[in-house]
Simulated assay, not measured.
Amino acid sequence: MRAAKGEGSMSKTDKGWRGYVTVNGKRKYTRYHKTKALCAQEKRELLNRRDDGRLVAGKVPTVAQWMNHWSENVTKARPTTAALNAWVITNKIIPELGSIKLSALTAERLEQWVVDLNVKPASQRRYLAPLKTALNVAAQRGHIPFNPALRVELEPQGKPNTSAFSREDRDAILAAAVGRNRARWHLSVRLGLRPAEALGLTWPDFDAKTGVLTIRHQLLRATGQGLYLQDAAKTAAGEREITLPKSLAALLVEHRREQMRLMAQVGDEWVGWSYQGQPVALMFPQSNGKPVDAKMDTKLWHALLASAGLEDARRYKSRHTAATHLISDSNGDVAVTAKILGHADASFTYRTYVHPLAEREQALMDAMDLPAAPYVAPYDAEPSRVRQNAEPSDR
């Protein structure tokens, strides 16, 4: 019995059963199958995808062909993400997976690739990320029926080993913060600005009259592009206004005066920085006006901890410290803390950035040892007398 027009066809060959459907005048073939039933099943899947507009005629691209097309013509990632994606595609994906056709790429093959990378769980996710996004587009356009990267089982990532400085250690850091970066360290340790946000601050971002600081940029570096200003953070909540405490606003005002005096002293040695053809009045540049990049910022942070007599710690611990103490000082107001930190989700703030402090835990334990107040019975010791003397309206 012949198949209905437009339903495609199947036939038996030396390699097994194979079928096809017609898409825009071109044939799209199934794989070879041992049985007619299995072949019919795949042909039906092709027909469904064709009718839904998810089946593309012509040859299926290889992983290398598709990843190159996606990175050059489809993705709109920010410069830092685009540069990292390009490195992963060139050095990790194409060498191992590039020759495989998209239709032959399986979750099991991707899982083996991830294992062969021999990297930590966080890096596994970072290397798989461009594949996930690119294969999503491939599935939407009909090159593959589904995205195999979404079915990959990865090692548990676990909770990052992060903590916060105690109040005593935090105050030691602030006491050790002197010189041109003093105000920047206060913004980092007290308000939790991201390092790139603090480095990207410009003087138009600060209103000395109102004490309002607007966070609208991050100073980042991308391969092949150098330093650049990226608008806000990843979410809309990243661009925000913070009304500074008077002490911190005064620090910025004094920092501005010191910067003006420095510019007058160094004269022509102040080269400044221009971005996209426009001069940028950075709030916390180097002594010659050039930007402070992430590497230099990290070195300065380590030097600050050493001068405070503290052990070394990762740069982002300043942000965790600020979040923890903001929550504590605001009597647990997570929403306000999230707003200051630039988070859209307050629960994320609490889960990720708030850490138990040893001194507060000890205070709670000490409170449990305090003697209890004497108990006062709410009623007379003789309940019957209470009932007898009760007013009629109480009954």
Rank of each mutant, 00 (worst) to 15 (best):
L128Y: 10
D171E: 15
D171H: 07
S188W: 06
A164N: 09
A134N: 06
P156H: 03
Q157S: 11
A164M: 09
A183I: 07
S188L: 14
F146C: 00
L154I: 09
R180I: 05
F165A: 08
A139E: 13
F146L: 02
S166C: 10
L154K: 06
I144G: 02
P156R: 07
I144E: 03
A183D: 08
F165Q: 05
A176G: 05
R141G: 04
N147S: 12
R184P: 00
V178W: 03
R180C: 01
D171W: 02
P148L: 12
L128R: 03
S188Y: 09
L154H: 04
K159E: 13
A129V: 07
D169A: 12
R151S: 15
N136K: 14
V178A: 10
V152G: 05
R126A: 04
P145S: 15
A176P: 02
D169S: 11
G158C: 09
S188H: 14
A134V: 10
R125W: 00
L187E: 03
V137L: 15
H186K: 05
L135S: 10
H143D: 01
G142Y: 00
P130R: 10
S188I: 14
A172Q: 12
V178N: 07
G179I: 07
H143E: 13
P148N: 08
R126Y: 01
D169L: 00
H186I: 11
K159Y: 05
L174C: 08
A176M: 07
Q140K: 15
E155L: 09
V152M: 03
V152W: 05
F165N: 09
Y127E: 11
L150P: 03
H186C: 11
A172K: 15
Q157E: 15
S163P: 00
R141F: 09
P148M: 09
L131N: 06
L187M: 08
R180V: 08
L135Y: 06
L154P: 04
N136R: 13
N147A: 09
G158L: 02
A129F: 14
L154R: 02
L128N: 12
E155Q: 15
D169G: 01
S188Q: 14
A183Q: 04
T133K: 11
T162G: 02
E168D: 15
R151A: 15
D171M: 09
A139M: 12
A176D: 06
R126T: 12
P145R: 10
N147K: 07
R167A: 13
L135H: 05
T162S: 11
Q140T: 12
N181H: 13
E155C: 00
L154C: 03
R184K: 11
L174D: 07
K159P: 00
P156K: 12
E153V: 14
L187Y: 04
L128T: 08
S166E: 15
R170N: 05
N136V: 00
A164G: 10
R182W: 00
E168I: 10
N181P: 01
R180F: 04
K159N: 12
T133H: 14
A138Y: 06
R151Q: 14
A176H: 05
L154Q: 04
R167N: 03
E155I: 01
P145V: 07
R167G: 03
P148C: 06
S166L: 07
Q140Y: 03
V178L: 03
Q157I: 08
W185D: 07
A172P: 05
A172V: 03
R167T: 09
P160I: 08
